[in-house]
Protein backbone atom coordinates (compact mmCIF):
# COMPACT_ATOMS: atom_id res chain seq x y z
CA UNK A 1 0.00 0.00 0.00
CA UNK A 2 2.91 2.30 0.71
CA UNK A 3 4.35 1.56 -2.73
CA UNK A 4 1.04 2.38 -4.38
CA UNK A 5 0.68 5.52 -2.24
CA UNK A 6 -2.54 4.13 -0.80
CA UNK A 7 -1.62 4.26 2.83
CA UNK A 8 -2.61 7.91 3.04
CA UNK A 9 -6.24 6.76 2.83
CA UNK A 10 -5.96 4.60 5.95
CA UNK A 11 -7.14 6.49 9.02
CA UNK A 12 -6.09 3.99 11.60
CA UNK A 13 -4.19 0.71 11.89
CA UNK A 14 -4.80 -1.77 14.70
CA UNK A 15 -2.98 -4.99 15.48
CA UNK A 16 -4.54 -8.43 15.62
CA UNK A 17 -2.20 -10.26 17.96
CA UNK A 18 -3.03 -13.95 17.88
CA UNK A 19 -1.44 -14.43 21.29
CA UNK A 20 -3.64 -11.73 22.81
CA UNK A 21 -7.37 -12.28 22.26
CA UNK A 22 -8.03 -8.87 23.78
CA UNK A 23 -5.89 -7.01 21.27
CA UNK A 24 -7.96 -4.49 19.36
CA UNK A 25 -7.58 -6.27 16.04
CA UNK A 26 -8.67 -9.60 17.50
CA UNK A 27 -11.69 -7.97 19.17
CA UNK A 28 -12.68 -6.36 15.86
CA UNK A 29 -12.20 -9.69 14.09
CA UNK A 30 -14.54 -11.26 16.61
CA UNK A 31 -17.08 -8.46 16.29
CA UNK A 32 -17.27 -8.78 12.52
CA UNK A 33 -16.69 -12.56 12.35
CA UNK A 34 -13.47 -12.22 10.40
CA UNK A 35 -11.00 -15.10 10.34
CA UNK A 36 -8.11 -13.60 8.44
CA UNK A 37 -5.87 -10.57 8.43
CA UNK A 38 -5.40 -8.06 7.06
CA UNK A 39 -8.92 -6.81 6.84
CA UNK A 40 -10.28 -3.36 6.15
CA UNK A 41 -13.22 -1.63 7.82
CA UNK A 42 -14.80 1.21 5.89
CA UNK A 43 -17.04 3.42 8.00
CA UNK A 44 -19.34 6.20 6.89
CA UNK A 45 -22.07 8.17 8.62
CA UNK A 46 -24.76 7.14 6.16
CA UNK A 47 -24.25 3.38 5.99
CA UNK A 48 -23.23 0.43 8.14
CA UNK A 49 -19.55 -0.43 8.23
CA UNK A 50 -18.31 -2.33 5.20
CA UNK A 51 -15.78 -5.08 5.74
CA UNK A 52 -13.21 -6.12 3.18
CA UNK A 53 -11.14 -9.24 3.64
CA UNK A 54 -10.16 -9.33 -0.02
CA UNK A 55 -7.53 -6.69 -0.64
CA UNK A 56 -8.04 -6.33 -4.38
CA UNK A 57 -11.76 -5.68 -3.88
CA UNK A 58 -10.96 -3.03 -1.29
CA UNK A 59 -8.50 -1.38 -3.66
CA UNK A 60 -10.92 -1.46 -6.58
CA UNK A 61 -14.14 -0.49 -4.81
CA UNK A 62 -12.93 1.95 -2.20
CA UNK A 63 -9.61 3.33 -3.40
CA UNK A 64 -10.48 3.21 -7.08
CA UNK A 65 -7.10 1.62 -7.58
CA UNK A 66 -5.85 -0.89 -10.08
CA UNK A 67 -4.39 -4.34 -9.62
CA UNK A 68 -3.30 -6.70 -12.36
CA UNK A 69 -5.20 -9.92 -12.85
CA UNK A 70 -2.07 -11.84 -11.84
CA UNK A 71 -1.95 -9.95 -8.54
CA UNK A 72 -5.63 -10.63 -7.89
CA UNK A 73 -5.30 -14.33 -8.63
CA UNK A 74 -2.22 -14.60 -6.44
CA UNK A 75 -4.06 -12.94 -3.55
CA UNK A 76 -7.03 -15.26 -3.90
CA UNK A 77 -4.73 -18.29 -3.77
CA UNK A 78 -2.70 -16.95 -0.86
CA UNK A 79 -5.85 -16.43 1.19
CA UNK A 80 -7.63 -19.60 0.13
CA UNK A 81 -5.31 -22.62 0.29
CA UNK A 82 -8.45 -24.77 0.30
CA UNK A 83 -8.82 -23.95 -3.41
CA UNK A 84 -5.96 -26.37 -4.04
CA UNK A 85 -8.55 -29.11 -3.72
CA UNK A 86 -11.05 -27.68 -6.22
Amino acid sequence: MHQADQFKFIDRVVLADETDPKSEGMLLAGKYNIDRAPFFIVESESAPAKIYTVYYRFVKEILNGQMTEDQELREIQDNHPDLDFI
Binding site: T19, P21, M26, L27, G30, D35, D78, D84
Partner: peptide, 22 residues
Protein backbone atom coordinates in the same frame (compact mmCIF):
# COMPACT_ATOMS: atom_id res chain seq x y z
CA UNK B 1 0.47 -36.38 -3.34
CA UNK B 2 0.15 -32.80 -4.55
CA UNK B 3 2.96 -30.26 -5.09
CA UNK B 4 5.25 -32.43 -3.00
CA UNK B 5 8.22 -30.22 -3.82
CA UNK B 6 6.64 -27.37 -1.85
CA UNK B 7 6.32 -27.21 1.88
CA UNK B 8 2.82 -28.40 2.76
CA UNK B 9 2.01 -25.93 5.47
CA UNK B 10 3.73 -22.89 3.99
CA UNK B 11 0.47 -21.45 2.76
CA UNK B 12 -1.47 -21.69 6.00
CA UNK B 13 -2.73 -18.27 6.96
CA UNK B 14 -5.50 -16.57 8.85
CA UNK B 15 -6.40 -15.89 12.44
CA UNK B 16 -6.80 -18.77 14.86
CA UNK B 17 -10.54 -18.76 15.46
CA UNK B 18 -9.98 -20.13 18.95
CA UNK B 19 -8.27 -16.85 19.85
CA UNK B 20 -11.01 -14.59 18.57
CA UNK B 21 -13.39 -13.29 21.18
CA UNK B 22 -16.88 -12.54 19.92
Amino acid sequence: GRWWWEEATKKECGLHAVNIES
